[in-house]
């Protein structure tokens, strides 16, 4: 057989063998995916579809889930004072969890790094994370109580000691965020410590040789190289802050009408306390859309970071 003959036959033959192999592979792959597919369809996709469906119904208590409401639920949302408060608080939560865990986690990581008791300190800061959020909420409820530790401590320094931390509209959200961050900051810290440890040493040493001060090394080299880890920490924190529930549910003093409401709590309240399932579903849809938007922004930023470090 000449080289030309071979060249003519080989692609066709290879093409057929390839197609057969690919078909067989696809079938095997499908077989392996069936259990996961069933779970995803049954427990993820279907509830989402049903949720969107119910948000357009008048379902309340045991009736109305087959009555079409159009966009009534959404109209009601837009006009609702509670929804406005919950939305505003959620924004505060997201902004706070965009900044605090990263800043605090990074500060802690830099502080503890190469410290003599790094392991011990790391454990201590991580410890709150393993407690049940509701338990933490209860404990901090007493910390913030009118005659609790916080006010008592303030009085030692002659500061105003009659703040009703969890009873005042202007303090409650921030008080709960402090608790939340206190419990959650261990993970960002550990992730950032790992990220720092994994950074290549050479460019940092090269920057030192290039005349950079420690601060310049940090801002020009360490931070940019650490940005993938920072991004992960930001995403985890924002999603955690966005979906925060337990702390608010436990520490919030009464619902609704109090300034501590978040979208998650408001949704839960309307559904499980008020039995307004259609309305609660509409809140859930809004929540879902916001998460989608956050994920989208994250993908864009991720792409930027990847390209910067590529």
């Amino acid at each position: 057989m000449s080289a030309e003959d071979l060249a003519a036959i080989v692609p066709a033959e290879m093409g057929r063998a390839d197609r057969v192999a690919r078909r067989r592979n696809a079938r095997t792959a499908l077989a392996f995916m069936v259990p996961a597919l069933v779970l995803v369809l049954g427990f993820l996709l279907m509830p989402v579809v049903m949720n969107v469906w119910f948000s357009f119904t008048k379902w309340k208590r045991f009736q109305g889930f087959n009555e079409w409401a159009g966009i009534d639920n959404y109209e009601k949302l837009v006009g609702s004072v509670n929804f406005a408060a919950a939305f505003q608080n959620t924004v505060i939560w997201v902004v706070a969890s965009l900044i605090l865990p990263v800043v605090l986690g990074l500060s802690l990581a830099l502080l503890l790094r190469n410290m003599r008791f790094e392991e011990t300190a790391k454990t201590i800061f991580f410890l709150p994370r393993i407690l049940a959020p509701t338990a933490v909420g209860v404990i901090w409820y007493y910390v913030y109580a009118p005659d609790g530790i916080l006010n008592n401590t303030l009085s030692l320094f002659g500061l105003p000691d009659d703040v009703g931390w969890l009873y005042q509209d202007n303090t409650i959200t921030y008080a709960i965020i402090v608790t939340f961050v206190w419990q959650m900051v261990g993970l960002p810290m550990v992730l950032l410590l790992l990220g720092l440890a994994a950074l290549p040493k050479d460019p940092i040493e090269a920057a030192k040789m290039d005349g950079a001060t420690p601060f310049q090394v940090f801002t020009n080299i360490t931070l940019p190289l650490l940005s993938p880890t920072i991004l992960i920490v930001v995403i985890l924190s924002v999603l955690a802050g966005f979906t925060a529930f337990d702390h608010i549910w436990v520490m919030g003093t009464s619902f609704p009408g109090k300034k501590s409401l978040s979208l998650t709590v408001y949704m839960y309240y309307e559904g499980f306390s008020n039995n307004a399932w259609g309305f609660a579903s509409a809140i859930a849809v809004v929540l879902g859309l916001i998460v989608l938007a956050i994920t989208w922004v994250q993908a864009i930023v991720q792409d930027r970071v990847d390209r910067m470090l590529k």
Binding site: P200, D202, P203, E205, A206, A207, M209, D210, N220, I221, P224, L225, M308, L309
Partner: peptide
């Protein structure tokens, strides 16, 4: 007042 060339080059990747 010294400059160094590293075996790994140690360029700033970003």
């Amino acid at each position: 007042g010294v400059a160094m060339v590293f075996q790994s080059y140690a360029l700033y990747p970003h």
